[in-house]
């Protein structure tokens, strides 16, 4: 686990980042699928009240590639991307996976393999 901290205003979110600040969609999706709904809900409930501040902060940084961002900002971005990942679980499905959905592992994200798709 990375020992980089989150940016100063968000250090209280450190326990969430330790679990969820993952660099790729596949990793974040796997974290979602291997979590209980209670864990996902707790993540959502903790981050949601801070999300406006997080996005306001991230608005002052360029979009990509993420490795041009300072390490702690990148970590905050990954945390926010994980929030985007789990939102459908909370707001749509009320369970970690898509109910009776196609296997995510067989739905290959080309954009993670550098196939001409922006980060």
């Amino acid at each position: 686990m990375s020992d980089t901290r989150l940016p100063e205003p968000f250090t209280d979110l450190e326990p969430l980042a330790a679990v969820w600040a993952l660099a790729t969609e596949t990793e974040r999706n796997q974290q979602r699928l291997s979590s209980t709904m209670a864990q996902i809900q707790a993540f959502y409930d903790t981050l949601l009240p801070r999300m406006e501040a997080v996005l306001t902060y991230l608005s002052t940084f360029p979009p990509e590639p993420p490795d041009t961002l300072p390490q702690e900002v990148r970590r905050l971005l990954y945390l926010a991307l994980a929030m985007a990942e789990i939102t459908t679980a909370v707001e749509l499905h009320q369970q970690p996976s898509v109910p009776a959905g196609f296997e995510p592992r067989r739905f290959i994200p080309d954009h993670e393999r550098g196939k001409g798709v922006g980060g």
């Binding site: 608005s59 971005l77 991307l81 929030m83 990942e85 749509l92 196609f102 739905f107």
Partner: peptide
């Protein structure tokens, strides 16, 4: 901005989950 990277991710994940429903 990096914030818009997040909004794009939200739209992507929503589309992906809908496609997983189609795929089923």
């Amino acid at each position: 901005t990096a914030a818009e990277t997040v909004t794009r991710e939200y739209n992507k994940c929503l589309a992906r989950d809908v496609w997983l429903e189609d795929g089923s």
